[in-house]
């Protein structure tokens, strides 16, 4: 390895400062999470915790049903993820590998839905969900998000890249569309399906506005709503709030460590479409 030049040293120092600045809100969260109540509300504030009060992580479960929040969110996100994989891969297969009347029209219909800001549909969707008596239920959180135009587009691009000869060969073996789809296309498309899975899971895990509108009991709250409701509680111990936040962001951080590659690939694919 070459010696570090002065310029490189300066670069590393600058980057390190930037990294600390970017990471600071997260570091702050973990620091607050292990402070005692007195430390958390002291002035001048403690920059670094002077104790390791791990009991916070247990006490926070008494303050708010963090377990329920996380459980709800995982359930909803997992079902939406699976649902999106099913609907999007089926639609994508039809667009990529089948010939049918009105294909161009249907495809432009799908693509056009990507242009519609979701907020435009929000009010009528709320009314629909209310009329179905689905307010404050899992169905209400899940069903509106089971289809995805972006996911369909992503998978279609991938399916199109599969070699044509593969289908010809399968056809000779008497393989129809359904079998070809289930036993050849899907197993070959694991990378693309993985990307969509991570993407849709993260999207649901982090969604805010829709759960805010349609949930109103602690039993149904998702993580993001439950945590942000903590700010309204009187006499809250902030160290416990931050212990709750730490628990909630942990899965996301793990996802970043293990799923960064998938995520980058998915977003790069999104970039190509633009």
């Amino acid at each position: 390895m070459k010696k570090l030049t002065a310029g490189q040293a300066a670069l590393y120092i600058a980057l390190a400062i930037m990294a600390v600045l970017v990471l600071y809100p997260v570091i702050y969260t973990f620091f607050m999470a292990v402070m005692t109540p007195a430390q958390a509300s002291a002035y001048p504030p403690y920059i670094v915790p002077h104790s390791l009060n791990l009991a916070n992580f247990i006490q926070v479960f008494d303050l708010v049903p963090v377990g329920t929040f996380v459980g709800n969110t995982f359930l909803v996100s997992a079902i939406v993820m699976i649902g999106q994989l099913v609907t999007a891969s089926m639609a994508a297969y039809a667009f990529a590998k089948m010939e049918f009347k009105g294909k161009a029209l249907m495809f432009s219909l799908f693509v056009s839905t990507m242009m519609i800001p979701w907020e435009v549909a929000m009010i009528p969707n709320y009314l629909v969900i209310r009329n179905l008596n689905w307010l404050d239920t899992y169905q209400g959180l899940i069903v509106p998000f089971l289809a995805t135009a972006f996911g369909t587009f992503l998978l279609r691009q991938f399916f199109l890249q599969l070699p044509k000869e593969l289908f010809e060969a399968a056809k000779v073996d008497g393989c129809g569309h359904i079998r070809y789809f289930l036993f050849h296309v899907l197993p070959l498309s694991r990378p693309a399906l993985g990307t969509l899975a991570v993407y849709s899971f993260l999207n649901m895990y982090n969604s805010y506005l829709w759960p805010l509108l349609i949930t109103n009991s602690d039993k149904m709250r998702t993580v993001q709503i439950g945590i942000s409701m903590l700010q309204y509680q009187e006499s809250t111990s902030w160290n416990l709030v931050f212990a709750g936040i730490s628990i909630v962001i942990l899965p996301s951080l793990l996802l970043l460590v293990f799923g960064l590659k998938q995520l980058v690939r998915g977003m790069a694919a999104g970039a190509l479409k633009g």
Partner: peptide
């Protein structure tokens, strides 16, 4: 890792922090 970290933090928790 540091610079892509905000991506995985949701708007709800980030705002509270």
């Amino acid at each position: 890792f540091a610079f892509s970290l905000p991506l995985v933090l949701a708007v709800g928790t980030s705002s509270i922090i």
